[in-house]
Design a protein around this nucleic acid. Structure first.
Length: 660
RNA sequence: GCCCCGGUAGCUCAGCUGGAUAGAGCAACUGACUUCUAAUCAGUAGGUCGCAGGUUCGAAUCCUGCCCGGGGUGCCA
């Protein structure tokens, strides 16, 4: 995993943007005290007609220097030593400085990238150690679409951080110590089918989990539904008193009415859900019979869980027996997604450290008793972080603190990233602040949050009885759709190859649909969108790659020879230069990605690169070119494009195929 | 009540540490396969960037207020 570190070489490659910035820095440092914010105003040009890069720093300097921005821009340009890098430096509009890369400089970068497996992307100057916590499913429960974001974003960030030269430790903080084990232990003791368990333990445990869940939900729903309906009726009556149906002038009152209506609708929705859960059981006579036999199942499950936590021999033995099966179950999905973890230290790993965590915080005077619970109060929050319940049990905050302690002492990371959905934001704020007070104050702790997965209706995706979209089914469907299209487009294709294409395109499309979106936005789940195979999709990028491979194949090109003995790059057509500029931006894109851990910037970059390539593909014949040097130059551009796409996609965890 | 996030084209979303005429994909419409892969390309159409103020050379982007939606908010994770 650390191979990029072991063969690290001194940075010989240049990143256009940082090189331009360093040239500007020399000038700006003579003019102002602090140039850092001004340097950030140098960025890729918004429109290619302005050049390749633009510096917007002259305008804000008006306030500092009291001169017209255009004049300041002129002074900057006069002092700028950048001729070798940019052949055209122009001032435009109110004081924009537009920069166009010098072609020979650009060609030099491309020539360096060609034989380089890293495509000219420099390694970071100061490698850090990142512990990344992601995926973290509860074992023994089926994985569903809600788990996909953390898994994909975490994996993508790990790969990207590693690629630029950081040391990365991935840790899957499994939920392997919770109530779900009480459920399968109870299920195993009362409802198991021994033969099925002997033959297919993973499947049987899954069945037991589901069945126990259904029965618990059934009883809970039967109990809650009448009171809920009663409450709704009462609220309806109150609403009628308030809202006569006449138009209401009073704004506050109108708002109140709206609020109550929404609340009633929400509760009605809940009631419907409860009814659905009841119906699931009632429509199945065997299940209904079981439900009637196990009326105390909810408390029994809690008892089994408590016994497990207390070290009960029998339950602990069962837990030890079940856990490997549960891991195997989720492993199957990770295998299909091509995801591996360095560590899988679940909640159970920490349970015997929790007492010590609470003691340590108490010793340092950071916690105190309040209403029977042990709490960490911090002045910036009006509610405490509770680390021990009044009944003595620990909470996830306690486990998370133990985890920080373990990671910090074991790996001495420079950063710990938590790829967890945004609803836990406050929890992480408190957790990080508490950890800092506790002494872990020299490590970056970041909650890499992401939006909730919403259903088709735009409402938060809920794990309801039955109608969740299981992750495994989603993967199957993705591969199936890709396979259908592949077969349609290549009716004479070889079956094994088509199957390979279906896998790569189907899974890749699913991943890209998620990763190409800004992680902080809520995610509206849609089959059609996640499984789309045209437009801005992984398929488009994979297709670009395959097109290049087609050319290389048809031209019978000796690729190694071409890479190691290149001809001078030639920009005959504008789009060739455009492609070249796009290619050398791979490295700076990765820098951008890692500033805020936003992988969608990489996806966007790759899409734009592929679009530029499509333009090149249309307008620039390669093999049928008479001019041998031009042909070679174009082959070199093709090869670089394909490898950049392949490498970029690999950082997103997406594969490519030679033919599709 | 308080706190956090969001509201951009018919749909799904980029763009948000202020920058030049607001972008993409899908859907719609018009064209391009005897051509290195048409899973593609070229083009057309589509927007009071929730509303109202403010800050300034310049605001989708920053500030304030409001409207709408979602989430969180002391013993779940």
């Amino acid at each position: 995993m650390d191979s990029h570190l072991s063969d690290a070489v001194p940075t010989k490659y240049m990143n256009a943007l940082s090189e331009i910035k360093s040239r500007f820095k020399r000038v700006l440092d003579q003019m102002v005290d602090d140039s850092s914010s001004l340097l950030e105003m140098i960025r890729p040009a918004q429109d290619s007609k302005f050049g390749d890069y633009q510096a917007n720093c002259a305008m804000p300097m008006k306030g500092m220097l009291g001169e017209p921005p255009r004049k300041i821009a002129e002074q900057i340009v006069a002092k700028l030593e950048i001729d070798d890098l940019c052949h055209s430096v122009e001032i435009a509009g109110p004081g924009f400085i537009n920069l166009k890369l010098d072609d020979s400089w650009l060609k030099q970068r491309l020539t360096e990238a060609l034989p380089d497996p890293r495509l000219g992307v420099p390694l970071v100057d100061t490698p850090g150690t990142y512990v990344i916590d992601f995926s973290s499913p509860n074992v023994a429960k089926p994985m569903h679409v809600g788990h996909i974001r953390s898994t994909l974003i975490g994996d993508g960030l790990s790969k990207t951080l590693r690629f630029v030269g950081h040391r990365v430790i991935t840790d899957n903080h499994l939920g392997d110590w919770g109530t779900q084990f009480g459920m399968i232990i109870y299920g195993y003791k009362h409802l198991v089918n021994p033969q099925a368990y002997a033959e297919k333990p993973v499947q049987e445990l899954g069945r037991l989990y589901k069945q126990v869940r259904q029965i618990i939900d059934f009883h809970a729903a039967s109990q809650q539904r009448p009171t809920l309906l009663e409450r709704i009726a009462k609220q309806r009556a109150e609403l009628e008193e308030l809202d006569s149906g006449e138009p209401v002038d009073d704004k506050k009152k109108r708002k109140e009415i709206g609020r109550r209506k929404a609340k009633i609708a929400e509760q009605q929705e809940q009631a419907n859900e409860l009814e659905a859960k009841m119906a699931t059981v009632q429509s199945d006579t065997d299940l209904l019979k079981l439900a009637e036999q196990h009326t105390d199942i909810a408390t029994e499950v809690l008892t089994e869980t408590a016994k497990l936590h207390a070290g009960d021999q029998e339950n602990l033995a069962l837990w030890n027996e079940f856990l490997p099966y549960c891991r195997e179950d989720i492993r199957r999905i990770y295998d299909r997604l091509g995801i591996e973890f360095d560590h899988e230290l679940g909640e159970s790993f920490y349970h015997d450290q929790l007492e010590g965590v609470v003691e340590s915080l108490a010793e340092k005077g950071l916690s105190r008793e309040s209403e029977g619970a042990t709490c960490v109060f911090m002045e910036q929050y009006d509610t405490p972080m509770i680390i021990r319940k009044k009944d003595g049990a620990f909470l996830y905050a306690t486990t998370d603190l133990a985890t920080i302690q373990h990671r910090a002492t074991t790996w001495q990371p420079s950063a710990m990233l938590y790829v967890v959905d945004h609803r836990q934001h406050q929890h992480f704020e408190k957790l990080f602040d508490a950890a800092k007070l506790w002494g872990y104050d020299d490590v970056e702790m970041t909650h890499v949050s992401f939006g909730t997965v919403l259903g088709d209706d735009g409402k938060p995706f809920k794990t309801r009885s039955g109608d969740t979209v299981g992750l495994e089914g989603l993967l199957d469907e993705a591969v199936h759709r890709a396979g259908q299209l592949a077969t349609e487009l290549n009716p004479e294709g070889n079956a094994a190859e088509l199957q390979e294409v279906a896998q790569v395109v189907g899974i890749g499309g699913l991943k890209y649909a998620d990763l190409s979106q800004n992680r902080s936005s809520d995610y509206k789940f849609s089959y059609d969108k996640m499984l789309a195979l045209k437009g801005n999709t992984a398929t488009y990028l994979q297709y670009s790659f395959a097109r290049v491979q087609g050319i290389l194949r048809k031209g019978n090109i000796d690729i190694e020879a071409m890479r190691n003995d290149p001809v001078a790059f030639c920009f005959e057509n504008d789009v060739e230069r455009e492609l070249g500029v796009s290619l050398i931006r791979f490295g700076e894109t990765l820098d951008e990605v890692l500033i805020d851990y936003k992988l969608n910037l990489l996806a966007n970059y790759l899409f734009e690169l592929a679009q530029t390539f499509s333009g090149f593909f249309e307008n620039c014949p390669v093999l049928k070119n008479e001019d041998e040097d031009l042909k070679q130059s174009r082959l070199q551009l093709c090869d670089l494009t394909a490898r950049t796409i392949q490498t970029g996609l690999s950082l997103l965890g997406i594969d490519v195929v030679e033919k599709m």
